[in-house]
């Protein structure tokens, strides 16, 4: 994991890492990744991955409209809403 990778990961995670933090961060992350490399030793040939630990299938709901939040509640925790809209940052069009 080099500086460039850290920057790429920081961009993907939308976390601004400042120049000063970068090397500390890198060392810590490397240290942890080093430990994770332990998994390379494990033999997992022909072992399927388990993403859901309980075997549940077909949990679905009926297509019905239920109670929705009113506009005021929806916007309750947002900063500077305008005319019923959430205010967001600038987006290039």
């Amino acid at each position: 994991m080099d500086k460039e990778t850290i920057e790429k990961v920081a961009n993907l995670s939308k976390l601004a890492v400042e120049e000063g933090e970068l090397s500390d961060f890198k060392d810590e992350l490397l240290n942890i990744l080093d430990y994770f490399d332990k998994l390379d030793e494990a033999n997992t040939e022909n072992v399927p991955p388990t993403s859901h630990v309980m075997e549940i299938i077909n949990k679905m709901r009926e297509d019905e409209v239920e109670k929705e939040l009113d506009n005021e509640s929806a916007l309750k925790n947002s900063s500077n809403p305008q005319e019923g809209y959430f205010k967001g940052p600038k987006v290039r069009d």
Partner: peptide, 20 residues
């Protein structure tokens, strides 16, 4: 991401910089 709730900052900037 500071849009619907939570910590926010000045929104008059490009979204990627804002989120970060």
């Amino acid at each position: 991401d500071g849009v619907r709730y939570g910590h926010y900052s000045n929104k008059n900037k490009d979204w990627e910089d804002y989120f970060s």
